[in-house]
Every structure is written in C-alpha cells, then in structure tokens.
Amino acid sequence: MPDNTLMAADAASSPVCREFTVMELRRTGPESGSPAHSPVGPDQSHWLLDLDLTAGFPGDAGWTPGQFVMLRPVSWSFELLWARPFSICMLESGVLRLFFQVVGRGTRAMSALRPGDRVVAWGPLGQGFALEPETSTLLLAGGIGLAPFIGYARRHPQPEKLRLFFGHRPEVAEYPLDLLPQEMPMEASRQTCAEELACFVDDLERRIKEYAARQGLILACGPHPFLRAVQGLAMKHRARAQLSLENRMACGVGACLGCVTETTNQTLPVKVCTQGPVFWAGDVHLGGEA
C-alpha cells in the first residue's frame, strides 16, 4: 500500500495521519521493567510510550496541551477495531510521549508494543486547555489525568505561576512526576478508602475556593466522578474552570458521533473529540453515575 504523504509536517494546526515507529515503551512505578502480565493486575500498570515523529507530525508550535492523538498499532488487524485516544503528554524534539494506564483490551495490547513496532496515529486533535501566562493557574489531576498536565507545565512560560494538586489511588511511584518542571509547586494525595476520598474532596474545595477568590484559572483532568466533583465545586464558588473529558471515541475526528456530551448552550449534543475534549465547566453536562 502506498504511503501517501497527506500533509506537510509544518502545517501547524492541521492534523496528520501517518504511521510511526515505537522508540521505547517503559513501565513506570516500583516494578519498572517487569513484564506486562505482572500480579499488579490489568488496571494498575502505567506506561510511557515514545514514538518517533521524525516521519512528519506538527512540531512544538503545532499543538496545544490538552489536545490528544488517536493511536492504533498496525498489528491489531481488525480484532480490535478502533484506535484509542490519548492526551499528548509530551511532544518535543521529534518524539511524541504518551502516558497511559492499562484499563482494557486496547491498552493491554498496547503494553505489549516493542521498539520498532509500527502504529498509526492521527492528531493533534481537539481543543486544548486555556494558557494564560500571567494568571495563577491550578492544575487538578486525578490519576492518569496527569498526562496532559506534564505537557502543559513544560510548555508554560512561567511554571512558577502554576500549582498542581494531584489525587491518585495507585502508589505515587506509578506516576512520572520527574517530568514536571521543578519550578512548579505540587502536592500529591493518595486515596485508598472512602474516608481519604472525602478528605480529598474537602482539599479540592479549599483550593478551588482560593483560586476563585483570586481570579485564578483552574484546569482539571481525571476520571468522571473526579470531574463531576470539580465541576460542582467550581460552580459553587464561581471559579473559572476547564474540564478535560475522556469519552469513548471511535474516530476522533467528529464523524462517528459516539463521544458526544450534552452542553448548556447547544441544542444538539456536541462532539467531545472536536469541540472538546476541554470545555469550560459551566458549559457541559456531565451525565452518568458518579
């Protein structure tokens, strides 16, 4: 099959679809380097995947943190049909780095990738986070929702204006916090039971209230219940907050209409892949059970 080069690499805002080569896949956390089928279980292992983008992809200037890519290993044939969406964790020096957790069949299969394997990827896709260099900005990450904030903090011209509050259930060592700029203050908080979760929500409220009072910006990415909590608190305290949704997607380009969400200002459901994944907290209805 001919490899049609569809878009020049310097076409800043236009997404591209190409085949890329896996450079490295490494497991993060205390059992780093252990095989994928370790006793830690399928929903616990976290991975950093590096792709060689020198074959052509928008460079540093061509993406916004919070945007995502669709990724599909060539070896999947048809058994796993859809590509999977991943936040861009880092896109620097011709390397696209994704940070993912094994949560199902697709990510399980991805954890078996090896250097030299080919993957099809398209992106950058969607609308990223607001970036206001002079505004005090609170980053709220839940678990694997840390991924886009690594890129956000690294791209921010004044990381000392940022503060990261990071809630997680697995051990903190699972997360590549060493990739975050040292100038950015951060706190990590682990929740392993309902009591700790309740304390975490109290902590969230205190911080959201504080940033609302000082006209700061709040950005959140994490599991659905986490986003619902942040949304509720942001509304309560009239904070300026953006949420990054991670709905299931088939295409990532606005065609399948599988990822839509209801909004407060549109009659028809909107496509999370193209009009999101980042939305202002007041604009979107987060349905479903907590």
Binding site: P2, N4, L6, R72, L81, W82, A83, C251, A255
Partner: peptide, 14 residues
C-alpha cells in the same frame, strides 16, 4: 473510516 481517517483515500489510491 474510523480505523484511520485516511482509509477511503488510501483504498481509492490502492
């Protein structure tokens, strides 16, 4: 078309 967004174009070219 969902497997990769350039699929129809690739098929037409192939």
């Amino acid at each position: 078309n969902f497997l990769r967004p350039d699929m129809a174009f690739r098929i037409a070219a192939e």
